[in-house]
Design a protein around this nucleic acid. Structure first.
Length: 578
RNA sequence: GCGCCCGUGGUGAAAUGGAUAUCACAACAGUCUUCGGAACUGUUUUUGCAGGUUCGAGUCCUGCCGGGCGCACCA
C-alpha cells in the first residue's frame, strides 16, 4: 500500500515538476494524522512561489482525481503536511496475506546476489573473552542478520590476535608460574579453568611495563614466538592457543554465532611486514627512530608505528594484510564491514588512510563501525570496577537471576537450564541492541532482572504467551485461516494499532539495515509487543463462538511471525515456555 | 595542548531537518478470580548555555560550559 501511494504521488508531483525520487512517506507519530504523511508541499512551496498550504491543496486535488483503491482519505494538516488515511479493510487483508506467506515475512530479496563480509568479536587467544567482546558479538551478529534479511550473503569473519606482545607476556608468566607442575594440573582441568588460568597469567605478565629488564625478556620471547625458534616456547604457545580457541567456540555456540572464516594475526603478520616495506620504498611510510611509521599529520591524522624498532609488525601492519586478503579470498565481496570498540576510531582512520594509498579498491569497500563499552550502574557487577569482567561471569550472573525467577514454574531441571540461558542471553543482547551503536551501554542488572517493559524477556514473554493462545485456539478447533478462501474470511470493521505496526515491519528492517541501526528493530518490537498485549487485554482471541475468531487467530499468528523474525534479527531466541 | 565522539524527564534510552519531543523504569492512582499478571489503563516530570542557518532545529553551523576516548613502537 505504501508503494501504491508513493508511485501515485510521484505522478502527481511530476505535474508540479517535483522530482519523484525526492519523495518519501513518513509514519506520523500521532495516529490522528493518518497512516502516512508527506512533507513535499512544505519542502517545495518556496521554489514554486506558493504557500505550503496552497501547494498542498493543489496536490491533494490532483491526487484525488484518481485516488488509489487503498486510500480512504487525504487531508492537509498543520503547516502543510499531506496526510493519507488507509482503509481499515486494507490492513486486515494485509494481515491475512502475511499469514499466508508464512515464516518469511519481512525478508526481502532486493539485494540478493551480493556478498558482504562482517568481521566482529575479534577476541585474543591467551586473553579473557570479556564483556566488550560480548558487545561486539551481539552487534556484529545483528548487523549480519539485518544484511541477510535483505537477501545478501554474509560471510561472518572473526580476526583473532594469536601473536603479539600480549602473548609474549602470558608465556613469560606461564614459565615464571613454573611450570611443569602447574601445567600438569591445568591440563586435566576443564577448558574454562584453563582459559581462566591463561587470563591470570596475562594479567600477571602485564604488570611490569616499567621494568626495562623484564621488558627486554618479554620482547625476546615475542620475537621467538614470531620466529618459532624455541621449542619450549612453541609448546606453551600451541597449548595456550588451542585452549583459547576451544573455549571461544563454546561461547560462540552459546551466543548463536557461527563464523564462516577465522583470520589469525599470525597468518597476516609476515605479509603485513612485506606490504609496509614495499610501500616504505614508495614513500607511503617513513623511518623514524628505528621504526617504520606513517606520518598521519599530512592528512590531518596522527603518526602511527607500523613496524617496531625490533622489526616486528604492529596491529596496523597486520591489518593492511588482513584487509587485502579478505578481498583475495572472496573477490566478489561488495563490502567489508568491521565492528570494533570506538576507542580505536582515530587509529582506524589512520589505517584506512594508509589502505587507501596502498589499495584504494579495498579501502573504498571497507566500512568501520564502532561501539561503546558496557558499564554497570548497580548490582554486584559494579563492585568489580577496575577489573575486566568476563563475558562468562556476566552471563552466569544474569542466568542465576533468571533461574530464581522461574524456579516455581515447575520446569524439569534440564528444561530450566535451557530456558534460563535463552532468557539471560536475550536480556543481555536486548540491552545492548536497544540503543544506537556507538554509545556506551549502561547495564543496570537490577533493571534487567525485573524483566518489565523495555527488556528482552518482555519481548520473549509476549511471544510465548501469544503462542500459547494459538495453541488454545487450535484445541478449540478454531480454523486456521491459511486454508480458507479470501471471501470466506470475516474481517473486522476497525483495525487496531497492532495491524498497523505489523505491516510496517519490512520498512523497519530496511531502515535499520541502511543505517546499521538494530535499535530501530528493538524499539519497534517493544511497541509491537505493547500493541499486542493491549489487544490481548481488550479482545478474546480464542473464542469459538466469536465470528471474528479466525481473523483474531490469524492476527495473533502474524504477530508471532513478526516478533519471531524481529527477534531473530537481534539474535534473540524465543523459548517454548518461560 | 591537539583531534574525534557525546550532553534529551529523578534514572536509562529513542527520534529520517517536520506537526503537541517518544518509550521504559521509578513515583502515584486504577483495571482484573485472565486466552499465561513477566499484563493492561491513567497521572506527574525533559532537549547543557549563548548566538546563527531554515517555512520548520534535539538534529545543521559558530562559540562557551561539562563528560568520554585517542594522540609512537600494545591491540
Amino acid at each position: 500500500m505504501k508503494n501504491e501511494i508513493l508511485s501515485h504521488l510521484g505522478r502527481v508531483a511530476a505535474t508540479f515538476e517535483i522530482p519523484a525520487n525526492s519523495l518519501k512517506l513518513d509514519y506520523p507519530e500521532n495516529p490522528e494524522h493518518g497512516d502516512f504523511s508527506s512533507n513535499l508541499a512544505m519542502a517545495h512551496a518556496k521554489k514554486l512561489g506558493m504557500s505550503p498550504k496552497e501547494l498542498a491543496e493543489k496536490i491533494i486535488a490532483e491526487f484525488t482525481k484518481d485516488i488509489p483503491a487503498s486510500v480512504e482519505s487525504v487531508s492537509i494538516a498543520g503547516p502543510g503536511f499531506i496526510n493519507f488515511k488507509i482503509k481499515n479493510k486494507v490492513f486486515a487483508e494485509e494481515i491475512i496475506s502475511i499469514v499466508k506467506s508464512g515464516a518469511e515475512y519481512g525478508w526481502s530479496t532486493g539485494e540478493s546476489g551480493k556478498k558482504i563480509m562482517v568481521e566482529y568479536t575479534d577476541p585474543n587467544p591467551f586473553k579473557i573473552f570479556h564483556i566488550g567482546h560480548l558487545m561486539a558479538n551481539s552487534i556484529g551478529e545483528s548487523l549480519s542478520r539485518l544484511i541477510q534479511a535483505e537477501g545478501v550473503e554474509v560471510v561472518r569473519a572473526c580476526y583473532q590476535g594469536d601473536v603479539g606482545l600480549h602473548v609474549a607476556k602470558t608465556i613469560w608468566a606461564m614459565r615464571k608460574e613454573k611450570g611443569e607442575e602447574r601445567m600438569k594440573e591445568i591440563t586435566d582441568a576443564s577448558v574454562t579453568e584453563k582459559v581462566k588460568w591463561l587470563g591470570e597469567m596475562y594479567v600477571y605478565g602485564s604488570q611490569f611495563d616499567a621494568d626495562k629488564e623484564l621488558q627486554k625478556e618479554i620482547q625476546s620471547i615475542n620475537k621467538k614466538i614470531f620466529e618459532k625458534s624455541d621449542p619450549e616456547i612453541n609448546a606453551l604457545y600451541e597449548k595456550g592457543r588451542a585452549w583459547s580457541l576451544e573455549y571461544f567456540d563454546l561461547i560462540y555456540k552459546r551466543l548463536g554465532t557461527k563464523f564462516d572464516k577465522f583470520f589469525f594475526e599470525s597468518e597476516v603478520a609476515g605479509r603485513g611486514t612485506k606490504i609496509v616495506k614495499e610501500f616504505l620504498g614508495k614513500g607511503v611510510f617513513s623511518e623514524s627512530e628505528g621504526a617504520v611509521v606513517f606520518k598521519g599529520e599530512d592528512h590531518g591524522l596522527h603518526t602511527r608505528v607500523f613496524i617496531t624498532s625490533h622489526g616486528l609488525p604492529t596491529y596496523e601492519a597486520k591489518e593492511l594484510a588482513l584487509n587485502t586478503e579478505k578481498f583475495e579470498l572472496y573477490p566478489d565481496l561488495s563490502q567489508s564491514i568491521i565492528v570494533t570498540a570506538n576507542e580505536i576510531n582515530d587509529y582506524f582512520q589512520v589505517l584506512l588512510k594508509t589502505l587507501s594509498l596502498i589499495n584504494p579498491n579495498v579501502a573504498e569497500k571497507t566500512t568501520h563501525i564502532s561501539h561503546g563499552i558496557l558499564r554497570f550502574t548497580s548490582g554486584k557487577m559494579s563492585s568489580r570496577k577496575g577489573n575486566v569482567i568476563s563475558a562468562e561471569s556476566l552471563l552466569s550472573d544474569i542466568r542465576e537471576m533468571v533461574q530464581e525467577k522461574i524456579i516455581n514454574r515447575g520446569f524439569a531441571p534440564e528444561e530450566a537450564e535451557e530456558i534460563s540461558d535463552i532468557i539471560a542471553i536475550g536480556a543481555i543482547k536486548y540491552t545492548i541492541l536497544r540503543q544506537a551503536i556507538g554509545g556506551d551501554v549502561i547495564f543496570d542488572s537490577a533493571a534487567s532482572v525485573s524483566f518489565e517493559g523495555d527488556s528482552g524477556p518482555y519481548l520473549q514473554y509476549s511471544t510465548v504467551r501469544a503462542n500459547s493462545v494459538l495453541e488454545k485456539a487450535a484445541q478449540q478447533g478454531i480454523e486456521e485461516i491459511k486454508s480458507k478462501k479470501q471471501d470466506e474470511i470475516i474481517l473486522p470493521e476497525q483495525v487496531s494499532l497492532l495491524e498497523k505496526l505489523i505491516t510496517r515491519f519490512p520498512d523497519i528492517l530496511e531502515r535499520s539495515r541502511k543505517e546499521y541501526a538494530p535499535q530501530h528493530v528493538a524499539n519497534y518490537l517493544i511497541n509491537l509487543a505493547g500493541a499486542f498485549n493491549s489487544y490481548y487485554a481488550n479482545n478474546t482471541i480464542a473464542d469459538k463462538n466469536e465470528p471474528l475468531a479466525p481473523y483474531r487467530v490469524a492476527l495473533t499468528r502474524a504477530f508471532v511471525t513478526t516478533m519471531t523474525n524481529g527477534l531473530w534479527v537481534l539474535g534473540i531466541k524465543v523459548p517454548k515456555k518461560m
